[in-house]
């Protein structure tokens, strides 16, 4: 029998993917660059800028170098997963749909206390903000629920709603586990040849990684090189925006943001400098957004023409 989200981490992900696929979402894969939150994925940040309808869901690893704890804290991770759903324009029944997803992963809502508690969201580096709630399941924040109002400094006319599920936290609740590394990723089973297949835990997959990444983030990452790296990614982003290439330019913005996060973890940025760095990333995000909106209004043929490549 197929394991349920109460038994396995991957079953939780698969269930959410199936649920949102059934609502018409494009189920995407993680973006292949380091980022601090699923909102950075171009499927959210860039797509939100367009007036065109859009529904997508995906898992995105989030890297939070300062949250790393060498694998010693049962609740904190420097690398964890978010399940992200974006739907634009926001439908009026989105709360019901969201609650449906909780039911789909096996929660009997009538037995629990589910609440929507004010929590507005803001990303200073992305010049993005929104209003919404943190969703409480018996007092635990299991999701962030946000109606985007601004992105890349642009007021959005078609309002996207973004749902972010903290997968590890939710899974710990479902599996009744106190230590994230004890989460069952794959339950034990029997191979086709009858031999026993041991379970795979979250710790099997990530505990070693947490230790080494924390060592890097807090102790080893080369500060002068990263400071230089920030400058390089920044100038590259500006250059690409100049050349009207917002998509690769945005990749550089993500690298700037990640580099900044690493520098923070290394304690290499003072409070005053911090504000300056945030502003530099934000300025890039705003420039990318402007250029993206311009090109989003074009057809692919027009974009090809602008690229000097004519018709295919």
């Amino acid at each position: 029998m197929e394991p349920t989200p109460l038994q396995s981490f991957q079953a939780l992900i698969l269930t959410l993917q199936r649920y949102w696929a059934a609502q018409g979402c494009a189920v995407l894969q993680p973006y292949d660059m380091p980022m601090g939150a699923g909102t950075f994925h171009p499927a959210t940040f860039l797509r939100a800028l367009s007036p065109k309808p859009w529904r997508a869901a995906y898992v995105q690893p989030s890297r939070r170098p300062t949250d790393g704890r060498y694998g010693e804290n049962p609740n904190r991770l420097g690398h964890y997963y978010q399940f992200q759903m974006i739907w634009k324009p926001s439908p009026l029944n989105i709360q019901e749909l969201y609650l449906g997803s909780l039911a789909a992963i096996g929660l009997d809502l009538k037995a629990h206390d589910v609440r929507f508690v004010e929590d507005d969201w803001e990303s200073p580096t992305l010049a993005a903000s929104g209003l919404g709630w943190e969703v409480w399941l018996d007092g635990m924040e299991v999701s962030q629920f946000t109606y985007f109002q601004q992105c890349g400094g642009v007021e959005l006319t078609s309002t996207p709603v973004e749902l972010t599920y903290g997968l590890e936290r939710l899974a710990m609740y479902l599996q009744k586990v106190d230590r994230v590394y004890d989460l069952v990723w794959v339950p034990e089973g029997v191979n086709p040849d009858g031999s026993h297949r041991p379970a795979v835990s979250y710790g099997d997959v990530f505990e070693w990684n947490e230790l080494e990444q924390a060592q890097d983030n807090f102790e080893n990452a080369d500060v002068p090189e990263m400071l230089r790296g920030f400058e390089v990614w920044e100038s590259q982003a500006k250059d690409l925006i100049q050349r009207s290439l917002p998509l690769p330019a945005y990749d550089c913005v993500m690298m700037c943001s990640h580099t900044f996060n690493m520098l923070q973890a290394r304690g290499a940025i003072s409070v005053a400098e911090r504000v300056q760095y945030i502003k530099r990333v934000r300025d890039l995000a705003v420039m990318v957004a402007k250029e993206y909106i311009r090109k989003d209004a074009m057809t692919l043929a027009e974009r090809r023409e602008e690229a000097g490549r004519g018709a295919v």
């Binding site: 049962p74 629990h112 007092g139």
Partner: peptide
């Protein structure tokens, strides 16, 4: 805890909230 569900399972809700504090 002031919950919003009088028909919920008090033991389940209390346990969940205690876990949050623990974490």
């Amino acid at each position: 805890i002031v919950a919003n569900n009088p028909e919920g399972d008090p033991a389940l809700i209390a346990e969940g909230n205690a876990r949050v504090l623990g974490a």
